[in-house]
C-alpha cells in the first residue's frame, strides 16, 4: 500500500463517487427485480429521491445513542471503502465493517421496542453466520495471492476464480446475507417486514435512516469490489471485471426472486455447514 498523494487523491475521488454508484446499483436492483416480477419498476434514480426526501424530514429520535450509532455505521463504511480504494489490507477492512455492523445492532438495542430488540438479536445471528465465511474468503485469497493486501491480490497472474471456485460460491452466500436478499433477508427493513416490521431499522426515521441507507450503499460497493477481486489479474481486462460484477449481482437478484425467506436457524445451518465446508475444502486444496 503506497501512501503517495496520487493514490490518496484517487482513493478520495473514488470514495466521493461511491454513493452515486451505490445508489445507481440499488436503482438497477429494484428495476431488475420488477422486471423479473413482470412489472415496471421505479425510475433508476429513485433511491436518490428517497434519500433526499428522508434528509428533508424532521428528526424523530428516541435517544441520542441511536444517532451516534447511525453515524458510527456510516463512518465505518466510509473508512472501509477508503482503505479498499487505497488497496490496503483486507483483514483491516473486515474488522472495520464488523464495527459498523455492531454499531447498527447496538443502535437498535438502545430502544425499548420489541421489534427492534428482536431485529437486533437476528442481526447478531446473521453476523454469526456470515463473518466466518468472509474470513475464510479472505484467507483463501491471501493464500492464493501471497498477502492480504488488495494491491497484491489485484496483481496475480491468473484470476483467482480458477483456483478458488468454491470460495466464490461462499462469497455469493455472504453477499446474499449482507445485501439482505431471500432466503436470508431475516432481520431488517424492506424485507422481513412480514414478521418484525422493520427489524433493526424500526426506530430510525428521517435523516438517521438516510444515513443508514447511504452506509448500505457504500457497503454494496465494497462487497462488489471484493467480488471483483476474484477476476482481477494481470491478464484480465477491466471489462471482464465489470462483467463479473454484473453477473454476480444478477444471480443474487435471481435467487432473491425464486425462494421464500427462511428462518435464522436454517440460515445458520446452511451458512455454517454448507458454506464453511465449501470454504474449508477449497483452502485445504490450495494448501495441498
Amino acid at each position: 500500500m503506497e501512501l503517495s498523494i496520487f493514490t490518496i487523491l484517487i482513493a478520495l475521488v473514488l470514495l466521493l463517487l461511491s454513493p452515486l454508484a451505490g445508489g445507481f446499483i440499488t436503482g438497477v436492483d429494484r428495476r431488475l427485480t420488477a422486471w423479473l416480477q413482470s412489472r415496471y419498476g421505479p425510475p433508476l434514480v429513485q433511491p436518490f429521491y428517497d434519500v433526499l426526501k428522508l434528509l428533508g424530514k424532521a428528526p424523530m429520535i428516541v435517544n441520542s445513542w441511536q444517532v451516534l450509532c447511525a453515524y458510527i455505521y456510516l463512518v465505518s463504511a466510509v473508512v472501509a471503502l477508503f482503505i479498499f480504494f487505497m488497496q490496503g489490507d483486507l483483514l483491516l477492512i473486515f474488522f472495520v465493517v464488523t464495527v459498523g455492523a455492531v454499531a447498527q445492532v447496538v443502535g437498535a438495542m438502545t430502544v425499548n421496542s420489541p421489534f427492534g430488540q428482536t431485529g437486533a438479536q437476528r442481526e447478531l445471528l446473521q453476523m454469526l453466520a456470515y463473518e466466518p465465511l468472509l474470513v475464510m474468503v479472505f484467507v483463501g485469497m491471501a493464500k492464493a495471492a501471497g498477502s492480504f493486501n488488495v494491491s497484491d491480490i489485484m496483481n496475480v497472474e491468473e484470476p483467482l476464480l480458477f483456483s478458488l471456485p468454491l470460495l466464490f460460491i461462499a462469497m455469493v452466500i455472504v453477499m446474499l446475507i449482507k445485501l439482505r436478499k431471500s432466503p436470508f433477508d431475516i432481520s431488517s427493513s424492506g424485507h422481513a417486514h412480514q414478521e418484525i416490521v422493520s427489524g433493526v431499522h424500526t426506530d430510525y426515521s428521517g435523516p438517521q435512516l438516510a444515513l443508514l441507507e447511504i452506509g448500505h450503499w457504500l457497503e454494496v460497493v465494497l462487497l462488489l469490489g471484493i467480488t471483483a477481486l476474484f477476476w482481477t489479474s494481470q491478464t484480465t481486462t477491466f471489462i471482464g471485471v465489470i462483467l463479473i460484477i454484473v453477473e454476480t449481482y444478477f444471480v443474487e437478484i435471481l435467487i432473491d426472486n425464486i425462494s421464500a425467506r427462511m428462518t435464522w436457524k436454517w440460515m445458520l445451518r446452511t451458512s455454517l455447514c454448507t458454506g464453511m465446508v465449501l470454504a474449508l475444502v477449497n483452502i485445504f486444496w490450495l494448501y495441498y
Binding site: 423479473l36 413482470s38 412489472r39 415496471y40 426472486n257 425464486i258 425462494s259
Partner: peptide, 19 residues
C-alpha cells in the same frame, strides 16, 4: 427452484402493468 422458469420468462415478456 421451480420459480426460475417463470421468473426468467418474465424477463422476455411484456410487462403486466402499464405506465
Amino acid at each position: 427452484m421451480y420459480m426460475t422458469k417463470n421468473v426468467l420468462r418474465n424477463l422476455f415478456k411484456k410487462s403486466a402493468t402499464r405506465l
